[in-house]
Amino acid sequence: MGIKSFQGKRETNQIKEETQILVSDYMTTNLVTFKAEDSLDYVIEQLITNKISGGPVVNEKNELIGIISETDCIKHISESKYYNMPADTNNTVGKYMVTDVDTIDKNMNIFDAAFKFISSRRRRFPVIENGKLIGQLSQKDVLKAAISVEGNTW
């Protein structure tokens, strides 16, 4: 039996260079945002037009104050339009948005973020820096990151 392939002496200090893929590499920064005083009809129109399932709600200082989603809009529809009730004059984002919002750090590894999606059952996480909204990471962004990884670097 002979040696089939010989590549020379192996270095004993082989260091595998690991480059982290961060949330900031894949987060969306051009966001459709809403204000608390926006009407839900406007939100529904924007969700359909922009083909999104929800968006962050910010104040005039671009600070995150909530999230409005398709589900929140459906709650409004089921409470009024379904029963043919008169339109609620207070059908604003501020009334229907979720205010207890989980955020994610822009320096988090994208695959740690994937685990956070699984454990929290959320569809999107706003990214905050110094109290200001700087982006959003969605489940689709994590999928884009996963498909771009070559080999088994998970």
Rank of each mutant, 00 (worst) to 15 (best):
I110P: 10
R10N: 10
R10P: 12
S5I: 14
T28L: 08
I77L: 11
E79K: 09
N13V: 04
N91E: 12
E18V: 15
S5F: 08
N30C: 01
E17C: 10
N62R: 07
G66A: 05
G2V: 13
E17A: 14
V23P: 02
M85N: 06
D105Q: 09
P56L: 01
Y82F: 10
S24H: 07
Q7I: 12
L64C: 09
A36G: 05
N50M: 07
D100C: 00
F34R: 01
I21Y: 06
V57A: 00
G2A: 15
E60N: 11
L47F: 14
N13Q: 12
F111P: 08
D41A: 15
A114W: 12
K75L: 06
F117D: 13
I118S: 11
K95D: 08
S39R: 14
E63Y: 07
N30S: 08
M108C: 04
N62M: 09
N30D: 14
E11M: 00
L31W: 06
T99A: 06
V101D: 00
T12M: 09
I52D: 09
G66Q: 02
F34Q: 06
Q46L: 14
S24A: 14
H76Q: 09
I48P: 00
E79A: 15
V23K: 00
V93N: 10
I74G: 08
N50T: 06
D100S: 02
A114F: 04
T33L: 13
M27K: 00
K106T: 09
G55P: 09
T19R: 02
V32T: 10
K35H: 10
I48G: 04
R123V: 10
E45F: 08
P126E: 03
Y83S: 13
K35V: 05
Y26D: 00
V58G: 06
I48L: 12
L22W: 01
I48W: 02
K16F: 05
V58P: 07
N107H: 10
K35G: 08
D41S: 13
F117H: 13
T33N: 03
K81L: 14
I67R: 03
T92C: 01
T33C: 15
N107K: 10
Q20H: 05
N91D: 12
K61F: 00
I118T: 05
G8F: 05
T12I: 08
K9F: 12
